[in-house]
Design a binder for these strands. Sequence first.
DNA 1: ATGAAAGCGCTAACAG
DNA 2: CTGTTAGCGCTTTCAT
Lengths: 337, 337
Amino acid sequence: MKPAHITIKDIARILGVSPSTVSRALKDHPDISEETRNLVKSFAEKVKYRPNALALSLRKQKTNTLGLIIPEIVHHFFSSVISGMEDLAYGEGYHMMICQSNENYYREVINTQALLDHRVDGLLVSVSKTTRDYKHLHNAIENGIPIVFFDRICNEIDSDRVITDDFEGARIATTHLIECGARKILHLSAPRHLLIGLRRYEGYCQALKNHNIDIDEKLVLKCDTREEVMTMRQHLLSLAPEIDGIFAVNDSTAIAAMQVLQENGYKIPDDISVVGFGDGPIATITSPPLSTVEQKGYEIGREAVRLLIQRLENPTVQLGFQTKIVTPTLKKRQSTR
Amino acid sequence: MKPAHITIKDIARILGVSPSTVSRALKDHPDISEETRNLVKSFAEKVKYRPNALALSLRKQKTNTLGLIIPEIVHHFFSSVISGMEDLAYGEGYHMMICQSNENYYREVINTQALLDHRVDGLLVSVSKTTRDYKHLHNAIENGIPIVFFDRICNEIDSDRVITDDFEGARIATTHLIECGARKILHLSAPRHLLIGLRRYEGYCQALKNHNIDIDEKLVLKCDTREEVMTMRQHLLSLAPEIDGIFAVNDSTAIAAMQVLQENGYKIPDDISVVGFGDGPIATITSPPLSTVEQKGYEIGREAVRLLIQRLENPTVQLGFQTKIVTPTLKKRQSTR
DNA sequence: ATGAAAGCGCTAACAG
DNA sequence: CTGTTAGCGCTTTCAT
């Protein structure tokens, strides 16, 4: 356990030159003679000199670190986002400091503060469900720290954003069902006061409209969890004879519905085709595997980091804020024909 | 976009005192008069002064940051680990810098270096599958940076460790099958050259032995993915009539087997009971829900951070290295009676 | 071509 | 009780 890392000063002392010479030699400053440069460089290599990123950051007023605030890490979509962010950031010479808000406003505030204290160059934020007040995020922007919001964006703050095109995803999913021959399509939806509930409902309606199918509000059920499907089991079964397709707002709801139907003798997809939304790992292991809308978390993560770094590295240019809309794609499997 | 954050120096200048007075007042140093203290504190609050963590770290030679190197973030077990780490670290005043090796040795080396450059106080590492050489990690230890290995530990380095008790998990799972009345238990296993393959196999054998059931090597199949189950479908079905239980090395294999059997008229759990291992989110949504061994990623993460912080905060005491063995528990669902 | 000095923001030993 | 000074590790004028 040697206590200290070797520093430029150490090298300078040992080699009998000044710290500035070492610093310059190390970064190939033209003023330094080849001789000195080689001497310093080979010695530095020998003693495994590594610059202290802390000192560098303090000096340069730039940490090359991005702060991430995410509601929860254990979630297929969010962990995919993190993975995409990490991969791109790494490639661009940035590192990530990651905080989990656990959907807790108070913790989100503390996290934001901590990241600012660490002087991250920018922030990547998906706001917690309990956040109503955005002072902490405004505060970051006022301190010159740009934010890119992703997925759970904040409308009160003008900023770069990356979101999923829920409308389009739902439209694609529903259209697929129609193309499979379905006409009476049940929509298991999230509440409309949630953005995804509303948008996916609208996409569903749009697809029907495009094919001149009337929207039957009896076929739109507020039902967005596995548990709720189980509770509504009877109602679902009472509708089953008259429907030929189901579009669910997420995969677990789709799967639960599929199972209830199967247990009662319905064949998927022969009697009823089913499409989900999200494409977590669960969609591939059901029987039949679930057709669903792929949500591209990895890509959203990359895109968010791309926007952020672009802004960080062009501080002079007054870039207008962009909203990147990532269009999900249909992942056709065997729950639809 | 104000460029700069306010500093102690700024406050000192404005208030007409010295920076050290401000510094002391802020941290309730006893030498400072109440008057000055209140003056400074209220002013600091008014201008939202926040200490620069970078400067502090440089000064104190302590960053309060833990570096994490993990093979992949998008994996239920690993993301649970991260979540547990983050939660505990947060509570103890530490932050996490997270790097993903993507199972790539080269990247693991670079990541380690980057974290050392950032002067993280300690390292949490699960080694990549492709890592054969441990110089980079030895190097960290030589630099006085303690490492806690978790899950994929490194035997060449003497260090703190947190692992799952695979043997015990397998024993519990198999015993559960036996208690459900099974006697002819098929084990779908990972290759024995992998530690988990070996340990879980041994646990399976131990349970049989404890109940005086002979081990039948024909009932131990190297088969540890969904795809492999599909490939071995016929073989599996040929064994099916003579077995009454299955213990699979992971959930997806268990589920695939369950599905193949169901499609061929077997009733789960009536004809055959099935137990998996790992308890990702998929286990709850199958029909019937899968009994499995819960792997406690969250707890492993917390434990790893606990060990690391304990070591960091008792640098003087020569603590012996500990290996924490987290025993998984049976999660009984409906795939077993 | 090299060195001395100042400073990034903060703290702590030493003076007074 | 408060200020001065030095220094954490590094870069970058400004001298020489």
